[in-house]
Simulated scan of single mutants.
Amino acid sequence: MTYFAKIPVADTALVEAQWKAAIEGRVSANHFDPSHRLSDADIGELVRLATSAPSAYNLQNWRFIAVREAQAKARLRQAAHGQAKVGDAAVTFIVCGMLAGRVDLAARLRPAVEAGLMPEGVVDGWVAAARHQFEDNAEAERDEAIRSASLAAATLILAASASGLASGPMTGFDAEAVRAVFGLGPDEIPVMLVAVGRAAEGNGSQKPRRPLEDVMVLS
Rank of each mutant, 00 (worst) to 15 (best):
R110N: 12
G25M: 13
A200F: 03
L117R: 15
E69Q: 14
V191P: 00
Q83W: 10
A100H: 03
V113S: 06
W62M: 09
H31I: 01
G87C: 07
R131N: 14
H132G: 01
R77I: 00
Q71V: 10
T2L: 12
A22S: 14
L218M: 14
N58W: 04
L218I: 14
N137H: 14
Y3H: 13
V194T: 02
S35Y: 09
V113R: 07
G121P: 05
K207L: 13
M170R: 06
L46V: 06
G101M: 03
L151T: 00
I189W: 07
A13C: 05
M98E: 14
G87V: 05
A72T: 02
A74Y: 05
H31V: 02
G44K: 09
A153W: 03
R75I: 00
G172W: 12
A21M: 06
G116S: 10
A72P: 00
E69N: 11
S35C: 06
D40C: 06
F134P: 00
S167D: 05
R102H: 12
I157S: 08
V122R: 15
R26H: 15
R131T: 14
A115M: 10
A149F: 00
T171A: 15
E24H: 13
A89G: 09
A145T: 01
S150C: 07
D187N: 12
E144S: 10
L38Q: 04
K85F: 09
L49Q: 13
S35R: 15
A159I: 01
G116F: 07
G164V: 08
A29W: 01
E120H: 11
G25L: 13
A200S: 11
S150Q: 09
T92N: 05
V191G: 01
L158S: 13
A17M: 09
A21P: 01
G97V: 01
D11I: 02
L193C: 07
T155S: 14
T12C: 12
P190F: 06
R209H: 14
L76P: 00
E213P: 01
V194P: 00
T92I: 07
A199W: 03
V67G: 01
V27D: 01
A10T: 11
A177Q: 12
P190S: 11
A79M: 08
S163Q: 11
G185H: 12
D88E: 15
P8C: 10
G121F: 08
G197M: 06
R63Y: 08
N30V: 04
Q78H: 12
L151W: 06
A5Y: 08
N58Y: 04
Q133K: 14
Q133I: 03
F4G: 02
A130F: 01
G44V: 06
F93A: 05
F93M: 10
A195Q: 03
A5K: 13
L59W: 02
E45K: 12
A166P: 01
L105N: 02
V196G: 03
H81V: 06
P208K: 11
Y57L: 04
F182D: 05
V194D: 03
